[in-house]
């Protein structure tokens, strides 16, 4: 199963490298979103809490613009029936999830680097806490958006419906991650932030389990 999901991941990776559709559009989206924020700020200095919030706003909308591809492309090319024949649902989900996790990590790394270069208040005091938040938040974001992407692809309605469906699901994760990012700006210790960290870990685990259990129903027509 692991070999098969890796093969699926490799297939997605190669086809992505060939067209560079997701990478190009995501990179442009990040640049556009951040420049809009910078234009609207102008010469004013914004507070730390606003910087932390805007950081996750850009992450959320970038994820919404790029991650739906994973399943929508299969439906568009008409290859999802073939996938149903050759692999079990959980294998397909693992492969797609792996691809989305890597995509989310790349794009969020770029966003973080751009933020630390362009926003003067984006100063992380507790770097390990920030990294942990970043990693756990990315995993949760990738899991939730992959399962919603599967629903969207089967629903046949692309685009606008995706953020609408994802936002309520991602809201607890994003609110907690904003809080944790502010903690890392303030230099809060791990001991004080452990409740919020536990929430994010719990969210990741619950969403991962529920996604694997429910994906069968979405995938089998």
């Amino acid at each position: 199963m692991i070999a098969k999901s890796y093969a699926l991941f490799k297939k997605d990776f190669c086809s992505e490298l060939r067209t560079r559709y997701a990478i190009n559009s995501l990179a442009m989206f990040i640049i556009v979103a951040i420049s809009v924020i910078l234009f609207s700020i102008g010469n004013e200095t914004i507070t730390e809490s606003l910087t932390g919030g805007l950081f996750w706003v850009v992450i959320f909308f970038t994820a919404m613009s790029g991650l739906a591809r994973a399943f929508v492309s299969e439906e568009e090319r008409g290859t999802s029936l073939t996938l149903q024949l050759i692999a079990s649902p959980s294998t397909v989900f693992t492969g797609k999830l792996l691809f989305n996790v890597i995509l989310v990590f790349c794009m969020n790394l770029i966003i973080a680097i751009l933020y630390s270069a362009l926003f003067e208040r984006f100063v992380v005091q507790n770097f390990p806490l920030f990294m942990l938040t970043f990693v756990l938040g990315n995993i949760g974001l990738a899991v939730s958006s992959t399962i919603i992407a599967a629903i969207i692809a089967k629903a046949g309605a692309k685009g606008t419906l995706y953020p609408v469906l994802s936002f309520p699901i991602l809201l607890p994760l994003i609110l907690t991650c904003v809080q944790l990012t502010l903690f890392s700006f303030d230099g809060t210790s791990f001991e004080e932030a452990k409740f919020e960290l536990a929430i994010v870990v719990g969210y990741d685990v619950i969403m991962l389990t529920a996604s694997y259990m429910l994906f069968d129903f979405i995938w089998k027509d």
Binding site: I148, I151, L165, P168, I169, P172, I206, A210, L214, F217
Partner: peptide, 10 residues
């Protein structure tokens, strides 16, 4: 149904 189950666990 799948969506309302996912939403319910949040």
């Amino acid at each position: 149904a799948v969506y309302s189950l996912i939403a319910f666990i949040t």
